[in-house]
């Protein structure tokens, strides 16, 4: 029985060493592949295109956003919001935050700042 146990132990040791060596080999290989991928980064990770809201949704959103800013006129065309009229500087960030959340393509700020 003791001899059998010893054999099992030896086989086990050999096996685990084998696994260890194999895992080491593949790790080294992975690292080298990664290193070369890093230095030759020619294919950027594809990211989803930016979602732009439709003009109808933008027009509704812009109407709501400018309701409490009586001096501000806003038009929507092809995803772009154009702001004209006037606003107090302290109120501009709130308006811009809301307009930015509507997912427009671009905001043309032509407001006169009071």
């Amino acid at each position: 029985m003791n001899r059998l146990n010893f054999k099992i132990l030896v086989v086990g040791l050999l096996f685990s060493t084998g696994v260890y060596v194999t895992s080491c080999k593949s790790k080294t290989k992975d690292e080298s592949t990664q290193a070369s991928a890093d230095t030759t980064a020619v294919t950027p990770v594809p990211s989803a295109p930016v979602e732009i809201a439709a003009d109808d949704a933008l027009t509704t959103g812009v109407k709501d956003a400018t309701k409490d800013h009586p001096g501000v006129n806003a038009t929507v065309n092809n995803g772009e919001i154009t702001l004209t009229g006037n606003i107090e500087r302290s109120k501009l960030p709130d308006l811009m935050q809301t307009l930015n959340s509507l997912k427009p393509k671009k905001i043309n700020n032509q407001l006169t700042i009071k």
């Binding site: 930016v50 501009l92 811009m96 930015n100 997912k103 427009p104 671009k106 905001i107 700020n109 407001l111």
Partner: peptide, 11 residues
């Protein structure tokens, strides 16, 4: 300043 450039949409 005053978000004039029209080159950033931050949500």
């Amino acid at each position: 300043p005053d978000f004039r450039a029209g080159d950033l949409i931050m949500n």
